[in-house]
Amino acid sequence: MSGSEGGPGAAGADGGPRSRRGIPRGLPGALAVTALLALYVWQIAGRGLAMLRSGEPLLIGIGVGVLVIPLLVIGLIAREYRLAATVQRMADTLAADGELPVDDLPRSPGGRIDRAAADAAFEPRRAAVEEDPDDWRAWYNLAFAYDAAGDRGRARAALRTAAGLYRR
C-alpha cells in the first residue's frame, strides 16, 4: 500500500503523482488469476451438479458444499475488486485536490521504513480520525499510516472504512 509498492501514493517518473493513463501494474495479474478461478469454478460446478443429480444423499450433500464454496470465493473476489476500484477513485480525488499522501518517511539502506518515524507520523493520522470519524480522507490517511507502521490488517480495515464512507 505504500508509494514504493506502486499504490495510490506512488509517484510518476517526474516525481508527481502517477496519472491514470495505461494499465495499472497489478491488473493483468489479477485478471489472469480471476480467469483461472473462473475456469476452476466452471469445472467444479460441473462436478457439483453431477453429484446433485446422482440421487445419493451423501453425494447430494457433498455436491451442495462443492457449489457453495466457489460462490463464496467469487463473492470475496468481487468484494476485493470493488474495494480496489473505490480506493483508486479516492486516490484520484485526493490527487486532484493535491492531498494524496506522500511516502517520504526515512528508510534503512535495505528499504525498510524507520519504525520511530512511522510511529511519529501515525499519531496525527489517528488523532484526525478521532476528531472526525466520518471523514473518509482521514481514514484513508490512517490506512497508509498503519501500512507504514507495518500493520497491514489494520491498514486494510481502515481502507474499508474509508471506502464505505466515500461511497455514501
Results as ranks from 00 to 15, higher is better:
residue 3 G to L: 00
residue 3 G to N: 02
residue 7 G to Y: 11
residue 9 G to N: 13
residue 10 A to Q: 12
residue 10 A to R: 04
residue 14 D to R: 07
residue 16 G to W: 08
residue 17 P to H: 01
residue 18 R to N: 08
residue 19 S to P: 01
residue 20 R to V: 12
residue 20 R to C: 09
residue 21 R to F: 13
residue 27 L to Q: 14
residue 28 P to Q: 02
residue 30 A to G: 06
residue 32 A to K: 05
residue 33 V to Q: 02
residue 36 L to F: 09
residue 39 L to G: 05
residue 42 W to F: 03
residue 42 W to Y: 10
residue 44 I to F: 09
residue 48 G to S: 00
residue 49 L to V: 02
residue 49 L to P: 00
residue 51 M to I: 04
residue 51 M to R: 12
residue 56 E to A: 13
residue 58 L to C: 12
residue 59 L to Q: 14
residue 63 G to F: 01
residue 64 V to Y: 10
residue 66 V to M: 01
residue 66 V to A: 03
residue 70 P to I: 04
residue 71 L to M: 14
residue 71 L to S: 05
residue 73 V to Q: 10
residue 74 I to G: 09
residue 76 L to A: 15
residue 81 Y to M: 13
residue 84 A to W: 06
residue 84 A to M: 09
residue 87 V to K: 15
residue 87 V to R: 07
residue 91 A to P: 07
residue 94 L to N: 15
residue 99 E to D: 13
residue 100 L to W: 00
residue 104 D to A: 06
residue 104 D to M: 01
residue 109 P to M: 12
residue 113 I to N: 05
residue 115 R to M: 07
residue 124 P to Y: 07
residue 124 P to Q: 10
residue 124 P to D: 08
residue 126 R to D: 14
residue 127 A to N: 09
residue 129 V to S: 09
residue 132 D to T: 02
residue 136 W to D: 05
residue 138 A to Y: 10
residue 139 W to K: 11
residue 142 L to S: 00
residue 145 A to E: 03
residue 153 G to N: 07
residue 154 R to P: 01
residue 155 A to F: 03
residue 156 R to P: 08
residue 156 R to Q: 01
residue 158 A to L: 04
residue 159 L to T: 02
residue 161 T to M: 12
residue 163 A to G: 00
residue 163 A to Y: 04
residue 164 G to A: 08
residue 165 L to I: 06
